[in-house]
Design a protein around this nucleic acid. Structure first.
Lengths: 250, 250
DNA sequence: ATCATGATGATACGTTTGTATCGTAGCCTC
DNA sequence: GAGGCTACGATACAAACGTATCATCATGAT
């Protein structure tokens, strides 16, 4: 019959405290964060701040070093707060991945030029999103990589990747098809197959850059080669945006 | 001056035991496993057996769930044995990765046909090594993926990948070059760029298969498309070398 | 016969980790 | 002004983890 075997020992301050504790013990389901999506301001900001701490730790020391206490310290809040805003460690990891995903999509969407005039240039900008071209993209790439590996053994994480990343190859394929329609591509292409290998390949090469197994210039040269292979050579000015192995780490 | 604060408390069985303990305490460096590469039989077999347990746990539940005790249980040995044969947890992980690498290279080398007659067929066989075509390859791919992510934050693991995997793109490039010399490829190719995207892309697509984000047939279709793009279309019989997933979970 | 050594069992320590409370302060509403 | 709710602090605890011993039993050298 012992009510509490763990946690702080029960030395009730008053009858009212004891009564409230008893009541809360009776109906455990979710008095915490019931709205889940409302409370548009402070609540979401706190969650985001804690999630950012998860990202930083995962990016710098790996996902396996993420603990509730480290996250709390990194976010500058108490352990209790991490528990309060997230439903346990697993939920924290899953939610942090979700948040990173929407954040990343927001940033990417802002970075690629919306003037869809030149399919080749558009495709180039899109593929650049998978390369660690700046600190932010390298950061996100590291975190995603850590999560990706973990998702092989965690269906909840896998679901986030599944739901999120899929239409990307289709987008690339659409851009190539657009180029085909405009007659600016080499004839006889299979847009879907080209898109599939491009996306998977550039992603992998981006990881190689993180690993310092390849230089960024090298990867961009590979991308340029294949873009030139797909699209008929044109583009009057050389348009070499960053071909020189300028070595721009970070 | 207390000699032992941790571990089993010192209740010496005899003066000789005490003397030995004292001596061992004085010179800590490596009385265990000093030969490191000799003792060709039993020692290496035990290490291998323990490493296999690491692989299995990493493949099934992720690298972050690997603990010394779990490894011991999975390998059917005592915790002490894992400590004895490996120098702590980190060394266990690193060595297990090294062993998996040599094992995988051995298997791959045995699988690809050594008759280097047809470059296209040879390349196809080589790329197949990165796809989870059977239980063994899927298994190894899962483990490597887990390690790869961790290696982003662990230089010792990164070193294993760096030293190991690099000449692979060069090999693919050489095969393409071989095809170019034989005149069986489309003109105007850059063998290195083609090899870089092929290896990175097929690897990434293989991961998609593990994630069940793609079907194996889909990935092989992508590979076939690009092989056909690189090599002039020929090959009378369809020449499907190993389509049936024979499922050999070694 | 003694002793060193390698392999293995047994056990315990100190720390970290996830989680479970209990308590309180500030609202807001009746 | 009593009671409910949310946000937060403080604390505690069991389990797991990495590691550090000590003990024992072979076997082979001295």
């Amino acid at each position: 019959m012992e009510r509490s075997e763990r946690g702080r020992p029960a030395v009730y301050c008053s009858r009212s405290c004891q009564a409230r504790a008893y009541r809360q013990r009776r109906n455990p389901p979710a008095p915490v964060t019931p709205p889940e999506t409302e409370r548009p301001d402070a609540h979401a900001r706190k969650r985001r701040r804690i999630a950012e701490a998860v990202w930083r730790i995962a990016s710098e020391h790996g996902l396996h070093t993420v603990s509730m206490r480290k996250v709390a310290a990194e976010a500058g809040v108490s352990l209790r707060m991490v528990q309060y805003y997230f439903d346990g460690k697993h939920a924290l990891l899953v939610d942090a991945l979700r948040l990173l995903h929407v954040e990343n999509e927001r940033l990417a969407r802002a970075r690629i030029p919306s003037d869809a005039a030149d399919p080749r240039r558009l495709l180039r900008a899109l593929l650049d999103e998978f390369l660690p071209l700046d600190g932010q993209r390298a950061f996100a790439l590291r975190v995603f990589t850590a999560y990706y590996a973990r998702s092989l053994a965690d269906p909840a994480l896998a679901a986030v990747f599944l739901a999120a990343e899929h239409p990307l190859e289709r987008l690339v394929a659409d851009i190539i098809t657009m180029g085909q329609a405009a007659g600016s591509t080499v004839p006889g292409l299979d847009a879907r197959r080209e898109a599939d290998l491009l996306v998977a390949g550039i992603t992998g090469l981006g990881l190689d850059v993180l690993h310092e197994r390849r230089s960024l210039a090298d990867v961009r040269a590979v991308a340029d080669y294949h873009l030139a292979r797909i699209f008929a050579v044109e583009e009057g000015p050389p348009a070499r945006s960053a071909d020189h192995p300028r070595s721009d780490p970070a």
